[in-house]
Amino acid sequence: MKKGLLAALCLAAAAGCSTQGQVDPDVMQIATTPLTCSTKAECDVWWQRAQTWVAGHSTYRIESATNTLIQTTGPDGGKRALAYQITRTQNPDGTATIGFAAHCDGSMGCKPNPWEAGADFKEYVRGTTAGAPQGGAKPSQPRGPTAMHPDAMQGQSIPGTSGEAVTQ
Rank of each mutant, 00 (worst) to 15 (best):
A137Q: 11
W115Q: 07
Q154F: 13
T128I: 09
P114V: 00
K138L: 09
D120P: 05
E116N: 13
T128P: 06
P145R: 13
V125R: 02
P150W: 12
G144I: 00
H103R: 09
S107F: 13
F121D: 03
F121N: 04
W115N: 05
P150N: 07
A119N: 08
G136M: 08
Q156H: 13
M153Y: 10
G135A: 05
M153I: 10
S140F: 12
D120V: 05
A132W: 06
V125Q: 01
G131W: 10
A137N: 05
D120Q: 07
A137C: 00
G136Y: 12
D120N: 15
G155L: 12
G155D: 08
S140L: 15
G131K: 10
Q154L: 10
P142V: 03
K122M: 09
K138M: 09
T146R: 11
Y124N: 09
H103A: 04
P145W: 15
P142E: 05
P133L: 01
G144R: 11
E123M: 14
M148D: 12
H149S: 11
D151F: 09
F100W: 10
N113W: 10
G106Y: 06
A101D: 13
D151A: 11
C104R: 04
G135N: 09
Q141D: 14
A137W: 00
Q134W: 02
G135P: 02
P145E: 05
T97D: 14
M108I: 04
G109A: 02
G99N: 09
A147H: 02
Q141L: 13
A132T: 07
K122W: 06
G144C: 02
A130E: 09
W115I: 02
G118H: 06
P133N: 00
R143W: 10
M148T: 06
A147V: 01
V125M: 03
I98V: 13
Y124A: 08
Y124T: 08
G127C: 00
Y124P: 03
A132M: 06
G131D: 06
P133V: 00
K111S: 15
F121K: 10
A101E: 11
A119H: 10
P150E: 05
A132N: 05
Q134E: 02
A137S: 02
A147Q: 03
H149A: 12
P145A: 05
K122A: 15
